[in-house]
Design a binder for these strands. Structure first.
Lengths: 195, 195
DNA sequence: CCAATAATTCAACGAACGTTGAATTAGGGA
DNA sequence: TCCCTAATTCAACGTTCGTTGAATTATTGG
């Protein structure tokens, strides 16, 4: 059904990357459970067995497809670099700048969707992301009581926005301009920092 | 493997309800996709075919298992009944009083998990819950600009708390006492109402 | 130009799942 | 008591899925 016979293809197409892209697309749309190797193969115009050839199991393919976005954790690290009075706004801005980049969004959606399904690797990726990015970096900078709890409540607000805007696509939050959401969310994030 | 032969059982056990309870338990733990009729049947100590006898398809079983919690929407309706200055706190309190009831939590978890997987009925249940409970009831009471967006951002904060606390079980939010979370979240919810 | 290796497809297997139809047993009304 | 209906299990079917091993074709290094 690939329209192509067996054997190596002409030229040197980067099929491995094409498979990874297709995987990210599919995982982001339907999550780990509903994603099928066969479906991803179809999306990549490739035989299912080729996926196994490159990545081994479905779990390993998923792991490979969510490998990079840990770079996003670095972005968060800079949020508290400068003055603390604007930290809430900078966090919100960083959040949306990550989610608005095509590739990152697909990847994060895949993680989010799959984590809800209980897919271990996704839950772990999520936990690690939040832990390293928010708890380890931000919490120590928060004065007052229960800094870690406050940091996680900030994260919760953003997770909730991601879910309602990007996953469930609820109106009017799904199509509201980023700037408006930032203007509304930033002060509440900031208030978690201050008292 | 049910340890019982074929034919009707003695007495009059409410097997239908037992199946529904088992279904809610399983759906809340693993979501719609990973839940299997066979697994639910095992949990209810019943043959898989009996589930089909009572509920028809897996989708109908799921629909039946999330039927009631719309009663929770009524609880939200009372949040804005009295003075507006305490609306944020009352919303937080209502939220946790619902999530702390065993049955409701299982049901809502099932919806949340399954909605992430893209299960249509779950997404629709969720959308309708948020729409009727929050957008239609709360938003009209919010003064100023973009009241519906503000209402959804309040909801987003709570959805995020539900995810981090009940679904992903991230510490320290997972085991923090409800009262502490309420004390921290309520003022931010309230601020969405006021300006 | 030849051999080795990499890329790719094909065909099939085994497992798990949702669903179905028939068989079996118990309860309830006449 | 007898029959009808409801409750329950059994065995099986057809599908889909992840995975595997062998076969086929292109590239590349010597």
């Amino acid at each position: 059904m690939t329209g192509r016979g067996p054997g190596r293809r002409r030229g040197s197409p980067d099929t491995r990357t094409e498979i990874l892209d297709a995987a990210r697309r599919v995982f982001s749309e339907v999550g780990f459970d509903r994603a099928t190797i066969r479906g991803i193969a179809r999306e990549a115009a490739v035989d299912p067995a080729l996926i196994h050839h490159y990545f081994g199991t479905k779990h390993k393919l998923f792991a490979a497809s969510i490998d990079l976005p840990m770079a996003a954790a670095d972005a968060v690290r800079s949020v508290f670099a400068e003055d603390r009075e604007q930290a809430g706004r900078r966090l919100a801005e960083t959040f949306f700048s990550v989610w608005d980049r095509e590739l990152a969004r697909a990847t994060l959606l895949g993680i989010l969707r799959s984590a809800m399904g209980g897919e271990d690797r996704a839950v772990e990726a999520f936990r690690q992301f939040l832990t390293s990015a928010l708890l380890d970096e931000i919490a120590p900078q928060i004065p007052g009581k229960r800094p870690r709890l406050r940091a996680l409540l900030m994260a919760s607000q953003l997770v909730g926005v991601a879910m309602t805007r990007y996953v469930m696509k609820l109106e009017p939050i799904a199509s509201a301009p980023v700037s408006e959401i930032i203007d509304l969310v930033a002060p509440r994030l900031q208030s978690y920092v201050e008292n």
